[in-house]
């Protein structure tokens, strides 16, 4: 009887090994698509943050390896579009060991919570992070309300 239980245990062990292999396979597959396991759940690339700073909105976008020439930022009313292309850095005459970073073009459009002044948007690209400062339209700015006493 004991030996039989051993057999069962061994079978489950084999299944565990198989399951681990499968898990790793899927992780590698995600990596191949340029998605980290924890990033895969997030739709949309590049990853973007949006902050509200009272009189202006602030946008941060993760754009490693993208130069100013390869990047387009368009603002119209309350819509913001960020598009561009990552140029391949693959050098000639090299054999490839690993390709995870990808080089595809991208485009992402956002509807901003308020209208912004498109002609006064400031954009800075530094260390692979794009920072946008979008001043809110006059009508969307917070206004101090004067309180009168009667």
């Amino acid at each position: 009887m004991l030996t039989r239980w051993d057999d069962v245990d061994r079978m489950f062990q084999a299944m565990d090994v198989f399951r681990n292999r499968m898990n790793r396979l899927f992780t590698d597959f995600d990596r191949g698509l340029g998605l980290m396991p924890d990033q895969a759940a997030i739709a949309g690339w590049p990853r973007t943050n949006l902050y509200d700073a009272g009189d202006h909105l602030e946008v941060r976008v993760e754009l490693p390896g993208i130069t100013v020439q390869d990047l387009n930022v368009k603002v119209l009313g309350n819509s913001l579009e960020i598009s561009g292309e990552r140029k391949s850095l693959t050098p000639e005459g090299y054999s490839v060991h690993r390709l995870e970073r990808g080089e595809a073009g991208f485009s992402r459009r956002f509807t901003l919570p308020v209208e912004v002044q498109a002609d006064q948007v400031e954009a800075i690209l530094q260390n692979g992070i794009l920072s946008l400062r979008l001043p809110k339209a006059e009508s969307a700015r917070p206004r101090k309300i004067e309180i009168k006493t009667e």
């Binding site: 054999s95 690993r98 990808g102």
Partner: peptide, 21 residues
């Protein structure tokens, strides 16, 4: 995320590190 290449002279590695100075 990294890209790794190799030729006769060297191994070449690219790594995405946005925001790191």
């Amino acid at each position: 995320l990294v890209d790794i290449f190799e030729n006769d002279e060297e191994i070449l590695l690219f790594a995405d590190l946005p925001g790191v100075n």
